[in-house]
């Protein structure tokens, strides 16, 4: 499945990432992709697709193809289409709302049941800025959420989309956890390879996670 690796040459890997959870997740993404925060922007309607490239180390570039899904109930039936071949998922919840964690948990269950078995899942608590300002605003304790994440073998981050705190770091950690060696291909051979990866229909990998 993987091309031979030459560590001397620049390495390029491409991954599919899906954002799920509370409807404000889009903001996390915009912080990551555009390094901007828009207070006025409401959640996504439908889903937004975008790409972002990060430099992991001096010769490794990781390109994320990101699906930003609207966290709404009525789009739930479309969700499988977005996470079907995803390599990683960012499940976002609101640190100031306990029920958003419950929602996140149900997404995680669904991912573990339906998505690729080797999907890297990161449970991400948003609105760190609010919590840091006033610890009383926190409804989800870090210990509790972290324990849950550890138990299921998930990554865990607390971030602020508003200030950008920890966002870059979390994406980097995700990238580090991804099987870059497997997916990497030399830059020149990139084009054909990428097209394959981005197709949602190529069920070349694990079809069933059970």
């Amino acid at each position: 499945m993987s091309a031979p690796i030459n560590t001397e040459e620049p390495r390029f890997a491409q991954f599919k990432l899906v954002l799920l959870g509370e409807s404000a997740v889009g903001k996390v993404l915009h912080r990551f992709v555009k390094d901007s925060f828009d207070d006025f922007r409401e959640s996504t309607i439908g889903a937004a697709f975008l790409t972002q490239t990060i430099l992991l180390d001096h010769n490794t570039t990781v390109k994320f193809e990101i699906w930003d899904t609207a966290g709404q109930e009525r789009y739930k039936s479309l969700a499988p289409m977005y996470y079907r071949n995803a390599n990683c998922a960012l499940v976002v919840f609101d640190l100031t709302k306990q029920e958003s964690l419950e929602k996140a948990k149900s997404w995680i269950k669904e991912l573990q049941r339906q998505a690729n078995s080797d999907i890297v899942i990161a449970l991400t608590g948003n609105k760190l800025d609010l919590v840091q300002e006033d610890e009383g605003a926190r409804e989800v304790s870090e210990d509790e959420a972290r324990a849950y994440a550890n138990e299921l073998g998930l990554l865990y981050f607390e971030v602020s989309a508003k200030t950008g705190q920890e966002i870059k770091e979390s994406f980097k950690s995700i990238a580090e956890k991804l099987p870059i060696e497997e997916k990497v291909n030399p830059r020149q051979g990139r084009r054909s390879r990428n097209v394959d990866l981005s197709r949602p229909n190529t069920n070349d990998q694990q079809a069933c996670g059970c």
Partner: peptide, 27 residues
């Protein structure tokens, strides 16, 4: 405002090949 642009930062893409990297597509 779902489809509106917010502060258009053209300094973004840092010379990467994918110039449209920051452009969203909606479904």
């Amino acid at each position: 405002n779902t489809f509106k642009t917010y502060n258009n930062t053209d300094s973004q893409t840092s010379g990467s090949e994918e110039n449209s990297a920051a452009d969203e597509e909606f479904w």
